[in-house]
Amino acid sequence: MNKFTTLAAGLILTLASPALAEKLPKLTVYTYDSFVSDWGPGPLIEKAFEATCACDLNLVGAGDGAALLTRLQLEGERSEADIALGLDTNLTAKATATGLFARHSTNTTNLDLPIDWADDIFIPYDWGYFAFVYDNTKVTNIPNSFEALINMPDDFKIVIQDPRSSTPGLGLLLWVKQAYGERASEIWSGLSPKILTVTAGWSEAYGMFTNGEADMVLSYTTSPAYHIIAENDLTKSAAKFEEGHYMQIEVAAKLASSNQPELADKFLDFMISDKFQSIIPTTNWMYPAVIPSEGLPVGFDKLITPSKSLIINSNEAQEVRDEALAEWLTELSR
């Protein structure tokens, strides 16, 4: 019996210890799944922030970026979240309109973005360019624009994602719209025979590409960096398009309903500090919003640099999106 009680007491103590730790103030950050996964930045960032904040950082994965906003809208003011991390500029206007987010107090003057940043709610933490990724041992005649892509041989196929269910898919939609404006329909009509298929999410498309199903896949200019750095595989490259490349800027913001507003501010400051930013390139495989003091990791120098950065003002994104989506649906449904 004694043995049993000791064991039970031990068990209770072990189980209770996390509860003791909860005496520390808790900062809850909602983000997307791949951010919190063991292969993403989450674990390292949690450790780094907790080392300085005397708090418990609670990273919660809530699907992808779009699901994240849905989740916050569903939860409303009762949300446990103090910070939302992982929206992009296509969503910020919509997010602002919900009134769920609060202004930040962080100094954002030292950001290293290809564009100027002036948003008093959202702060960028990383960014990238959408691009078509190909296998450089198989594709030799590399298209350098959408028009060149249209003129590729008949059996050259790409996989893209659906703008209705995926962030890169939406990025491509806006990319074509921004680059071609009125001619967007025409471009989609030309691209249509080149599109092998449209997937619901990035993972299906990228999986199909790596299995050799398609010649190119819509992803990021930074995707090859993963293969170069993590797998020592130099065969993946991104095609540089003359029109320029559409940007995705990933942002975070404090929720108005946060019960830890100071801690949240501290986290946002931390987010564009060297510690956080140096973790991003090789875990989230995007460009850091501020170049770390040690510079970008080796391998990033092998990536293409677009000659022009395209982005639609977040206030117009919603309207442009609806129009572009209608065109996309019409042309690809033919």
């Binding site: 659906d162 092998l196 449209v198 619901a200 996309w328 449904s333």
Partner: peptide, 13 residues
């Protein structure tokens, strides 16, 4: 069905 129909259906059709 959703993801399967889309991926093998070849597009928004």
């Amino acid at each position: 069905s959703f993801a399967i129909a889309l991926a093998l259906g070849g597009g928004p059709k």
